[in-house]
Amino acid sequence: MTTTYAVLSEGLEKRFGAVHALRGLDLAVAEGTVCGMLGPNGAGKTTAVRLLTTLLRPDAGSARIAGHDLVREAAAVRRAIAVTGQDTSIDGDLTGRENLRLFARLHRVGRSAARAGELLDRFGLTEAADRPASGYSGGMRRRLDLAASLIRRPRVLFLDEPTTGLDPAGRGLIWDAVRELTGEGTTVLLTTQYLEEADRLADGIALVDRGRVAHTGSPGQLKALVGAHAEVVVADPGALGAAAGVLDRLTGSEPSLDRERNAVGAVTRDPTLTLPQLVRTLDAAGVPLLDASLRPPSLDDVFLRLTEGPGAFAGRSLESTDSTDSTDHKERAA
């Protein structure tokens, strides 16, 4: 089957004077999916969103959004997309309902009152609908801003850190809305500082580092790349060497020691390794244990491992990345 891409960019570049913000951004987002764009501050995520939404013009490269050329068909791109940025576009002098009806009229959306009511209910704003938006909390204004972006059911929705500053309830409402949108066929490109958010929502993740997409994959694929972390705490410091030998054989990676805690850790990408197997092997080797754990990686681990230094992994494929070290321990095993 041929995949249809709602967002497809090749070699996008953007400079601001001496600052090279984007250095050849390649990105492919399939229709009806959520792509989470992650990266350290200054990696180029917001610049990429501003460029892909026609707010900036690329210096080089090309892109197609909802089938339209980003530069030659910019007006068609704008008709197909909606954007929720880090700053809200809400008029504080209008009520929440009036804001949404205004956006509906601007976009020539029929039945504006019904559409406004539907979105107010979806984002938990019905009770505050007829109060001036200037009295809304920051989280309520964020939800109203997202509701305004959805007034005309866009084909592609760009969300630039949409839940920053929201409480867990408000964040959950936006997560539910994103899931509903993709279920209806909308494509979502999401930049976020919350790795849990990307883990829960994203079908695919693009890790951006120094203006390039350094790695792509599903959350599961990226976690498998980093590997699970095995750790044992021994009752006798003299058994640290034996424990390290067992972990070396089971994980195939060099163990790390934390002598203050009498602990040994190692990273494994072997999905068949289990905690009972680890404990039984240590017991057979005569290693006295106080504790043992086998922790699957989180997206926090992925983010920290793959963006741990300026450009440390930019340009490498998933297969070529070395994941054999652990940042949780202080000293390499001798």
Rank of each mutant, 00 (worst) to 15 (best):
R97N: 08
V109S: 12
A133R: 02
R143E: 04
F158C: 04
L106W: 11
M140P: 11
L159N: 10
E127S: 14
L106Q: 15
R143T: 07
F158I: 09
I151L: 06
T95F: 00
G96P: 08
T95L: 07
L125K: 06
F103D: 02
S134E: 05
L106F: 13
L144Q: 03
R141S: 04
L157W: 04
G135I: 03
R141A: 09
S149Q: 09
G139V: 09
G110E: 13
F158S: 02
R155P: 05
G96C: 02
D130R: 03
A113F: 01
R142N: 00
F123Y: 15
R101A: 10
R101D: 08
L144F: 02
D130K: 00
L106S: 13
L150K: 09
R142I: 07
L102H: 13
E127N: 05
L146D: 01
L125F: 10
D130F: 03
A133K: 03
R153I: 00
G117N: 14
R131S: 09
R101Q: 15
R142P: 08
Y136Q: 01
A104V: 11
N99W: 07
L106E: 12
L120W: 03
R115N: 09
G124Q: 01
S149P: 07
L102R: 10
D130S: 02
G135W: 03
A147T: 10
Y136V: 02
F123Q: 07
R115K: 15
R131Y: 00
A116L: 13
G135R: 08
R108S: 15
L159W: 11
R152S: 15
G110A: 14
P132Q: 10
N99R: 13
H107F: 15
R97K: 05
L106T: 12
S149F: 06
A147W: 06
E118N: 12
M140R: 09
L157S: 09
R97P: 05
A128I: 04
N99Q: 11
R152V: 00
L102P: 00
S137V: 11
A133W: 01
G124L: 01
F158Y: 14
R111H: 13
L144K: 01
L144E: 02
R152W: 06
A113Y: 03
E127I: 00
R108V: 12
V109K: 09
A113E: 15
P154T: 12
P132C: 04
E118G: 09
S134P: 00
R141G: 03
R115H: 14
R142L: 04
A113Q: 14
L144D: 06
G96R: 02
L146C: 15
R131P: 02
R141V: 04
S134I: 01
S134D: 01
